[in-house]
Amino acid sequence: MSDSVSGGTDQLFNALAEQLKLPLLQIARLAELSPEVLPTIAAISEQALMLVDAYVLSKQQMDLLLEPVAASSVLYDVAQFIEPFAKQSGYQVEIDLKGNSKPIITNRQNLQAMLTLLGTSLIEAGAEDDTAEKYLVLGTHRSARGTVVGAFSNQISLSQQAINLTRQLHGRANQTAPELGLAGSARLAIADMLSERLHAPLKAYRHRSMLGIGSLLLPSKQLILM
C-alpha cells in the first residue's frame, strides 16, 4: 500500500472513530443515569452498530452482487428499523411509492444501509423542533432514466451543496453539513460511499413538496419482461 493510500485510510479510520464517540458516549451516560431508559439505550446501540456496519460495507473490496429488487420491500424494512428511533424524536415515518414502481437493479444490503443512514440523519437533524408535525418519507418516484429512491423530510431541506461539501470535506472536517449536525454528517458521508458502490451517486431530489436525498436506480429489464 502506498503512503498516500494508507494515509487516506488512516484519515478515514480516524474520522470514523471520532464519529463513533458520540453514540457510544450517549450509551454510556444514559446507562449511568438510570436503568429505566433501556429502550432508548437499545435504539442508540442499534444506530451505532448500523453506522459501523454501513462503514464496513462501504469499504468492502469485492464486487457487489446486483440483482432485481423491489424498492418497496427495502423501504418497508428501513421504515421498520427506523421506527423506534423516529418515535423518540417525534417523527412519523411514511412510505410513499409514486407511479408504477418497477423492480430496480441494485444490491439490497447496500441500498438498505444507505437509506437507513439517510433517514436517521434527517430525523436527528429535525429532532429539536417540537412545534410542528414531523414526517420522514421513504419514497420512490419515476424519472426519465429510472427510479429515484430516497429519504425526504418536511423539516430539513438539504441542498446538493450539502452533499458536495460532504464529499469534499469528509475525513478532514467533523461536521461537513451544518444542517445535519455532527452525527448526521457522518451518516451522509457513509451513505455517499455506499451509493458510489451502487453506481448511483446521491443527489438532492424533490419528492411531493419535500426536499431530500436519494439515488437514481435503473429498472430491472429482466423483470419488466416477465
Binding site: L25, Q26, L30, I44, S89
Partner: peptide, 12 residues
C-alpha cells in the same frame, strides 16, 4: 447540541 446528551446531562 446533541438531543440525547442534552436530556441526559439536564436530568443528572
Amino acid at each position: 447540541p446533541d438531543r440525547v446528551l442534552g436530556q441526559t446531562y439536564s436530568e443528572a
